[in-house]
Measured scan of single mutants.
Amino acid sequence: DETGKFLVLALYDYQEKSPREVTMKKGDILTLLNSTNKDWWKVEVNGRQGFVPAAYVKFL
């Protein structure tokens, strides 16, 4: 149950560059965990948590 969690859509592919980031593919649906930083949002994708560039995702 994803109640209270926001979902975001990956607009572009992103390859993680550090262990704190996660890789996503364009079209992936991600669970948004934290968006307090304007540049990097914490998400969960494929069972992994990490950061992606905020400009690469949008709210569903």
Rank of each mutant, 00 (worst) to 15 (best):
P53C: 03
M24E: 00
K5E: 10
P19I: 09
I29Y: 06
E16A: 15
E21C: 06
D13H: 05
T23Y: 04
T31Q: 10
A55L: 10
G50P: 00
F59Y: 12
Y12T: 09
L60V: 12
N34H: 07
K25R: 14
T36C: 15
S18Q: 08
N34C: 11
T3V: 13
D28A: 07
K58H: 10
D28H: 04
K38Y: 08
Y14W: 12
E16V: 06
T23R: 05
V45A: 12
N34T: 07
E16I: 05
V45N: 11
G4C: 14
K17S: 12
V22K: 01
V45W: 07
K38S: 12
T31A: 09
N34S: 13
V57L: 15
D39Y: 15
V45F: 14
G47Q: 06
G4E: 13
N46T: 06
F6K: 13
Q15P: 06
N46I: 04
S18I: 04
F59E: 09
T3A: 13
Y14D: 01
Y56T: 07
E44Q: 10
K38R: 11
D13Y: 04
D28R: 02
L33V: 12
K26F: 05
T23M: 04
S18R: 08
A54V: 05
L11P: 00
K42F: 15
L30N: 01
L33R: 04
D1N: 14
Y12R: 14
D28M: 12
V45K: 13
K25W: 08
G50V: 03
R20H: 15
K17H: 08
L30D: 00
Y56R: 05
A55E: 11
A54Y: 03
L7N: 07
M24G: 00
L9I: 15
N37W: 07
K42L: 15
K26S: 07
Q15V: 15
V57G: 01
K5Q: 15
V45D: 03
D28E: 10
G47F: 05
N46M: 09
F59Q: 10
T36D: 15
Q49K: 10
D1P: 14
V43H: 00
P53S: 02
K38T: 09
K42R: 12
K38Q: 11
Q15D: 14
E44K: 07
E2K: 13
L32E: 00
V22N: 04
T36N: 13
F51P: 00
E21Y: 05
T31Y: 12
I29E: 04
K5D: 08
K25M: 10
G47T: 05
Y12S: 10
L33N: 02
G50C: 02
Y56W: 07
G50N: 01
G47P: 01
N34E: 15
L7S: 08
L9C: 09
V8Q: 01
G4Y: 10
V52G: 00
E2L: 12
D13F: 04
W40S: 03
W40D: 01
K42N: 06
K26R: 12
D39Q: 12
Y14A: 01
E21V: 05
M24H: 01
G4R: 13
L9M: 14
I29T: 07
L33W: 05
V8E: 00
L60P: 05
Y14K: 01
T36G: 10
A54W: 02
N46E: 11
L30S: 02
T3I: 14
V43M: 02
Y56I: 06
S18H: 11
T3F: 12
L60M: 11
W41T: 04
L60G: 05
L60I: 14
V22A: 05
A10R: 01
L32D: 00
N37P: 04
T23W: 04
K26V: 08
V22S: 02
L60F: 12
V22G: 02
V8W: 07
V52N: 00
L11T: 05
K42G: 05
R20A: 14
K38L: 09
K17F: 05
P19D: 13
D39F: 15
L11I: 11
L7P: 04
P19L: 09
T3W: 13
R20I: 13
V22F: 11
V43A: 01
E2P: 14
E44S: 10
T31L: 15
K17M: 12
N37T: 06
T23D: 04
V22P: 01
L32Y: 04
S18E: 09
A55D: 09
L33P: 00
V52R: 00
N46S: 09
R20K: 13
E16H: 08
L7W: 12
Q49G: 06
K58D: 08
L60T: 08
F59M: 14
I29W: 05
K26L: 05
M24R: 00
K25D: 04
Q49S: 12
Y56E: 02
L33E: 02
E44M: 10
T3G: 12
V43L: 03
D39E: 12
F51N: 03
L30Q: 01
T3S: 14
S18N: 12
L11Q: 06
D28N: 06
L30P: 01
L30E: 00
G50E: 01
L60K: 06
P19M: 09
E44P: 00
K17C: 10
Q15K: 12
D28W: 10
V45T: 12
S35G: 10
Y12V: 12
S18P: 04
S35R: 11
E21P: 04
A54H: 04
T31I: 15
L32K: 01
G50W: 02
N34D: 15
I29H: 05
K42I: 13
Y56P: 00
A10D: 00
L7F: 15
K25S: 10
E2W: 04
D13P: 06
D13A: 06
F59T: 09
G50I: 03
A54D: 00
Q49N: 08
Y14G: 01
F51S: 03
N34G: 07
D13C: 05
E2F: 06
N37G: 11
E16G: 15
V57W: 01
E16T: 08
V52A: 03
Y12D: 08
L30R: 00
V22Y: 03
D39C: 14
P53L: 03
N34V: 07
N46V: 05
A10G: 03
F6L: 13
W41L: 07
D13Q: 03
K26H: 06
K5W: 10
Y56D: 03
W41Q: 01
V57P: 00
E2S: 14
K38M: 09
K42A: 08
L60E: 07
G47C: 06
Y14M: 01
I29K: 06
E2R: 08
W41R: 02
D28I: 03
P53R: 03
E2G: 14
W40K: 02
F6W: 14
E16L: 07
R20E: 13
T23I: 03
W41H: 03
G27K: 02
F51W: 14
L60Q: 07
K38V: 11
L11A: 07
M24L: 09
L30K: 00
F6N: 11
K5C: 11
V8Y: 09
A54I: 03
E16W: 05
L9S: 06
L32I: 07
R48Q: 08
K58V: 15
T31V: 15
T36F: 10
D1V: 14
W40R: 03
A10S: 05
E16Q: 14
F51R: 03
K26E: 08
P19K: 09
W40Q: 03
V52F: 01
Y12H: 13
D1G: 14
Y12E: 11
V52S: 01
T36W: 10
K25E: 06
D28S: 06
L32R: 01
I29P: 02
L33I: 15
D28C: 05
F51L: 09
M24N: 00
E2A: 14
L9N: 02
F51H: 05
Q15F: 14
K5P: 13
L33H: 05
Q15N: 13
D1I: 14
L7Y: 15
L11W: 05
L60C: 10
W41G: 00
V43G: 00
L33C: 06
K17I: 07
D13E: 06
N46L: 07
G27C: 06
P19C: 08
S35Y: 12
L32H: 02
Y56Q: 05
A10L: 02
T3N: 14
P19Q: 10
L32C: 08
P19W: 08
A54G: 04
F51K: 02
K25A: 09
K38P: 15
L32P: 00
T31S: 09
A10V: 08
A54R: 11
W41Y: 11
E44N: 05
G27A: 03
P19H: 10
L9A: 06
V52L: 02
E44C: 11
Y14C: 02
K38N: 11
